[in-house]
Design a protein around this nucleic acid. Sequence first.
DNA 1: TTCTAGCCCATAGTATACCATTGCAAGCGG
DNA 2: CCGCTTGCAATGGTATACTATGGGCTAGAA
Lengths: 163, 163
Amino acid sequence: MFLSRFTNALDVKGRVSVPADFRTVVALDGIKRGDDFDGVIVWPSLEGKWLEGGGMALMRAKQSVLNSLEPHDHSRIAFERAYFGESFRLSFDANGRVSLPKELAEFAGLDKQVTFVGLGERFEIWDADAYSSKAKQVRKLAKESRQALYAKVKLAAEQGSAT
Amino acid sequence: MFLSRFTNALDVKGRVSVPADFRTVVALDGIKRGDDFDGVIVWPSLEGKWLEGGGMALMRAKQSVLNSLEPHDHSRIAFERAYFGESFRLSFDANGRVSLPKELAEFAGLDKQVTFVGLGERFEIWDADAYSSKAKQVRKLAKESRQALYAKVKLAAEQGSAT
DNA sequence: TTCTAGCCCATAGTATACCATTGCAAGCGG
DNA sequence: CCGCTTGCAATGGTATACTATGGGCTAGAA
C-alpha cells in the first residue's frame, strides 16, 4: 500500500529516486504475483497536470475491469488508449531511480523537486511547489467534506447490499 | 482494541516508545491478516493539532470504504491525499520504539513528553501538557452530553431498522 | 562524430539496528 | 507482612546499513 509523501530531486539527466518505501511496495506485490518486472508504471493523470503511477498489479486490475466490457465498446477503447497507450514502463536502476521521459516531465511541469504522494493502491507525482500549495486546499476540502463522504459511503453500502 | 492512556518520553533523536499494550494490539491483528509489517501508521488529525494512528488493519478499512465511491469523485481523491498521502508508516525498533518524523512532531507540538490515548480502533498522540488540560474539558463535555448521546444513538437505531 | 540512454562507482547524510542501563512491578520466599 | 529476585518496559548511546544524489564511462543511435 502506497503511503506518505516524499520529495526527491530530479537531476540534469532526468532521473529521480523513487522512494524506498514505494520500491518495497512494488517489489512485494511483484513477488506475490511472480512478476519479473522491477519498476513502476507511470501515466499522465486525466484529472490535471500531474502524473499517476503504480505497480504492475494495478495495471492488471485495470485490465480485468476493462475486460468486463464488450471488446468494441467505444469507452473501453478510449480508456485503453488513455491508460495503456500513454503509460510508460519505468524500470529502476541499481540505485532505485527511474528516468522520466521528457514528455511526462513536461506534462506535469517537473524540473527540480518532485513529490511522490501515496494514495493506497496508486501514487501521484507532482512538482513539489505545485503540490505544497495544493496540499492546503486538499486538507481543507477533506475536512469540509467529511459529512458528505460519510453520507455517500452509507448510501453506497445500502445500494451495495440491495443489489 | 486500543485502550487507556500512556505517557512516554520523546528522546533527542525523535524516538518514542509505543506503549507495550498498543504493540500487542497491532501485532495481533497483523498476525490475523498475515501482514508482515510490524509497526503503526500515524497521520496528522483533521480535527486539530494532534496525531492519530492505528495499525494496517485500520488503513485497509479506510481503503475499502473509499473504494465504494466513484474513482474520480473529487472528495474521494481529496481524502486519499489527506489520509494516505499524509500518513507515515512507522516501524518498531527492537525495543518497541518508533521515530517520529520532524514534520509530525512539529505539527502536534511534541517535544518532551507525549501521551498516547487509546480510542478503540485507533489512538491519538498528544503533547502531554496539551492533553492533560484537554482531558479536563473532555471529561466535562462527556459528562454533560451523556443524555444527548443516548438520544442520538436511539434515533440512529430507529432509522437503521426502518431502512 | 556527437548526443543520448543505460550502467557502474563514489560519497554524504541520515535513519535504523544493535547493545547497555535503568526503573518499575509482579511473584516468590522468608 | 516485608524484603528479595526476576522479568519486562522504557530510555540512552553507538555503530552500521541504506537512501539519495552526483559524476563518469561505455555502447548504440542519429
